[in-house]
Structure formats: C-alpha cells, structure tokens
Design a protein around this nucleic acid. Structure first.
Lengths: 247, 247
DNA sequence: GTCAGACTTTGACTCAGATCAAACGCGAAC
DNA sequence: GTTCGCGTTTGATCTGAGTCAAAGTCTGAC
C-alpha cells in the first residue's frame, strides 16, 4: 500500500504545491500548525488509495503523481468522475466513508492530515476553510463542464476534450510550449480514458487513430503525444474556442 | 423579469427554507444581519434569471419554484448541469459573471443578497461559509453521480434515474407517500428532460411511453406521474438499489 | 367554441458507437 | 533470445439512440 522512494521535502515552505493546495492561503504560523499534523504517504502506480465504502481516516492533497476518482455500478460499468492532479484535495471534512474508488494511476505522493485534527484546524483557521470552498467551487464548475462532454459531445470531440485538458494542465506545470507545439505523455491507459469519457476502449483507440491520421495529433509509442497546432485541437473539441491559448 | 404575486414572508424566522439554505446554521443575531441585506425577486415560469456571461450583482437562494442551470455549446447543443430546488444556492462569491444560463421552469421566488455585502458577511460569519462549503460539497457529489448517469446509463435507465430524483425530492418536501405509492408532477418539459439526460426529446418521449406500457409508471396527462412501486423504479434506474426508500 | 401555437407522441429510417473477435507490440521475467 | 501478459489496434457486425417527418393533444386567447 505504500513504498516507492521519491524525495519529498518535509518543509511546507518549499513544497511544490504550496501555492495551489488547500494550504495556499495559510500564513507561516498556520503552516507550522499544519506541519505538525501532516504526514506523507506513497502509493505505487495501479494501487488503490481508497475503496468505495472505505472508512477514510484522513484527508489529503496530491503532492505528485495522478490519481483517479471512479464510481462503479453494480454490474461493473464504471465512470471516472474526477482526475486528481498535484494540489487537488481528496476527502471531505465531516464524512467518514469514501463514496468513490481512488486509484493511483502513476506513482503518487499524498500529503495527509488525520481527519479529526484537520477538521478542528479548519474551524480555527478560516484561511483553510476559505481555500477549500474555493477549490470545491472550481471542481464543481469543472464537473459541470464535464457533464457537457459526457452528455452532448461525439466520441471524437470527447477525445479532443480530454487531450485539451491534459495538455493544458501539463503546460501550466511544465511551461514547455515552444511556439504552440505541445508535447506530453498521456497518464492514462485507453481503458481509463474510456472510463473518463463514457466510451469503450475500442472507440477511444479508433478515435485516437483517426486524430492521428488527420494530423491533429502525432503519436510516438502509445502514450507520447505531440500537438502541432493547439487551436486545431480546440476546434476538434467543439469548445467555445476562446482562441486564447492555455488559460 | 419580475411580477407574479406569491406571498412570501419577509421574516427569516418562518422562511420555508430556513433550515436547509445557506443561512441554515445562522444564529438569530446573524439572521438579523442577513435580513437587512436580503430582498426577494419573483420570476415567471420560462423567464431567464441569468444569461451565461451576465454580470451577477447578487447571489441567491431558491425559496420556491424550480430553476435549471444549463450550458450551451456554440452550435446550440445544450446540457442541463443542475436542477435548482428550494433551498439551493445560486452564484459564487468572488466571481462576477455567470458561466451558466439560469432559467425559471416554474414561477420562482429567490431570496437575493447583493454580492459585496454577502461576501463581507461571509468573511465575518463562519456559519455561512461553513454551510456553503457543505452545500457545495453535496452538489459536487450530486454532479459526480450525474456523470455516471450521463456517461454510462441507457436511455431507459436515465429516465428512471431522473424520475427517481424528482420523486425523492418531492416526497421529502411533501411527505405524501402512502404505502410506497408516489404521486408527483413533472416540473420539466420533455425537452428539458432531454437536456438534463443528454438525450433527444423523441427518445425521452419513447422511453416514457415504454415505462408506462411496462407498468413502471402511470401517466395522467403529460406531467402527472404515479409510481405504484418505487423499488421497481429504482431497479429500472440501475442504481445500487439500497432498497431503502427515500433517503 | 374554435383557432393558434406549444408540447408531445409515434413511425420509418439512419448512423455513431457498442460488441464480439482476432491479432499486434512491447516491456519484463526467465 | 524467447515467452508471457498486458495494453492496444483493427475488423466485422449489431443495435440503441438520433434524425426527419407527420400527426395528435392540450391550453389559452379571442
């Protein structure tokens, strides 16, 4: 359930997600308090962080790596309902079982807080509660945008939408976009993509091939993606092409 | 934009949504403060409360009636992303344009607060911020459950899921369930149902007819629905049939 | 009471994506 | 190097839901 030896600073001060996570608004004194109740956990790619129905004894921020949030119907149909990237928050103060499966898709490091102390801390430091509200509202907006993708877009548009999101996230972390050319690695298998998009893995594969054939993307191996023209990809996604690159 | 003469008490003390809305946790003194900055607005069925992109000068709670939250793509495809029922909150502190269309589907009364004063109040009274966080987390869970409906369910299951939700909501408000028989009025047109479910209105109509033919529901007129056996409806929805009636 | 218009139902046909099935590619273990 | 297994691609076929079209129903206005 743990292992994997990635160096993670124990100091909040130079934490990579310091300015984006739930602690973003905290002042030095508050950070010191948080520092006392936090601990890191490592998960190997493919392992479960939480099973649906599990008792959660902690809440946590993703420090590095990627995790997915999924819901599964009785008959096995599954839908991914969230993609957790560095700085995203897992868990809900005031609830003690997870309604979702949380799975590490890459090696993952989480900054955890035992639930009780975190809840108490939240009551005392409005900065944390405020930031959590802000993050939750953002997630709600993202979930609603995703509902449009699931409910109204074609398979091709769905794939393009997912690539857009991943490209954006990646670019905002790595700033490697040279003159509109984006390059990134897909952190998801075809099956995980299908679960995110409400498709089958065959359809995902076919549409990836189609986008490649049409020159919208280039593939090196299965996972390494090059986007020669991001605005073209945006068009394919059918989004309000605000034109503006990388909000 | 306004009109419709429904009597609404101006006193928070006996407000019908007093115990569920964003003000639920407020103490009498706080309520008094809120009372000073609130005002009511009435909307006729079919009218827009907000257009996507509109400047929002207020946030509000639904007092009575039903509103929808929708997103529309450039080419006109639309997806409903939220159904606002009494006590639900509209707007986001710290943002000033609405990303959604908000439309009254029935005559609607909203309890509004100008944004600035409300934001200031939120900073001073943690009860409001806390309750809003709680409500937002609930909405996020609901949105994620809806993603499963949109992404993985068949048309028939989608319809059954929607009926389940409406029946539940209605029962929790009106408590008129006599021995498992539920009766309610659909607050949505077939087209609005289609927009919620990611279907066409024809498919909605066909599946409604099919559920009627199969005895899952009975219809009197287009909108008046009787559910003779709620657990049957739950089965049709494909949900984890917790069996338990009306959570 | 009838008319207009909005909402709904139903039918015939089409098609995007699912399903079933086979084969391919590639890294890890031996 | 060979083999195993997982992830992926591709093909053939099927089908659930969309599209196009026509007709039915209800409500409110005159």
């Amino acid at each position: 359930m743990s292992s994997s030896a990635q160096k993670v600073s124990q100091e909040c001060g130079d934490c990579p997600i310091r300015h984006r996570a739930v602690c973003a608004r905290c002042e030095p004194a508050e950070l010191t308090l948080l520092e006392e109740i936090k601990y890191y956990r490592h998960y190997d790619a493919g392992s479960h962080v939480l099973w649906s129905g599990d008792r959660m004894e902690f809440v946590a921020s993703v420090v590095s790596g990627i995790a997915t949030l999924t819901l599964t119907m009785e008959d096995g149909r599954t839908q991914m309902v969230g993609l957790l990237l560095p700085s995203d928050f897992v868990g809900r103060p005031g609830r003690d079982t997870s309604p979702y499966d949380v799975v590490a898709t890459t090696d993952l490091v989480m900054c955890c807080f035992r639930k009780r102390p975190f809840e108490q801390m939240m009551e005392r430091t409005p900065h944390i509660a405020h930031r959590l509200l802000e993050m939750t509202l953002d997630e709600l907006d993202a979930a609603r945008e995703w509902m449009v993708v699931l409910g109204r877009k074609t398979a091709r548009e769905k794939i393009a939408s997912l690539l857009t999101i991943i490209a954006r996230r990646d670019a905002s972390l790595n700033m490697r976009s040279a003159k509109g050319v984006l390059v990134f690695d897909l952190p998801l298998t075809r099956e995980a993509m299908a679960d995110y998009l409400g498709l089958t893995l065959e359809t995902v594969s076919r549409q990836m091939s189609a986008l490649k054939r049409d020159g919208v993307i280039e593939l090196a191996g299965k996972r390494h993606v090059t986007v020669p023209d991001f605005s073209r990809l945006l068009d394919e996604a059918g989004d309000d092409s605000d034109g503006g690159m990388l909000a």
